[in-house]
Amino acid sequence: MKLTRRHTLMMAIGSAVAAIMPFRAFAAVEDEIAAFTGGAEVGTAGITLIAPEIAENGNTVPIEVNAPGAETIIVFAAGNPTPSVATFNFGPLAASQSAATRIRLAGTQDVVAIARMADGSFVQASQEVKVTIGGCGG
């Protein structure tokens, strides 16, 4: 490949953008998480997030969250244009504080689930989901 000045410049800009992008995306999630937790410390025990390691298609990704004793679980997709995915509020007749749904992921990213427990504490779980761009899928 002929390395012209234009090529080199484009590659440099490209890698600079790539380096900044995930950082910006993560910052947006940090703000939303802080808004939910009020800056409180977030533990990691007592919450499960089940998501595929590789999503067959980013348009429909099945996930499941479970946090026994939680009042609310919020799910974020750290790399989506807007990170909020869903907020699950459990009522008195919820048998277990768990829910499954299907979400859209714009690209490979962390999916984060944070629960506010009945005692006011917060716990979180996160998992990276790889989202592939198809080859000849048309």
Binding site: T82, A86, L93, A94, R104
Partner: peptide, 24 residues
């Protein structure tokens, strides 16, 4: 009349929204 679950959905929920949950 009593709440089992109350979900706020954002645009990241897939087309044809699906939810599975447990009730007493």
């Amino acid at each position: 009349g009593e709440t089992v679950i109350d979900v706020t959905l954002e645009p990241a929920i897939s087309t044809n929204p699906y939810f599975e949950f447990q009730a007493i």
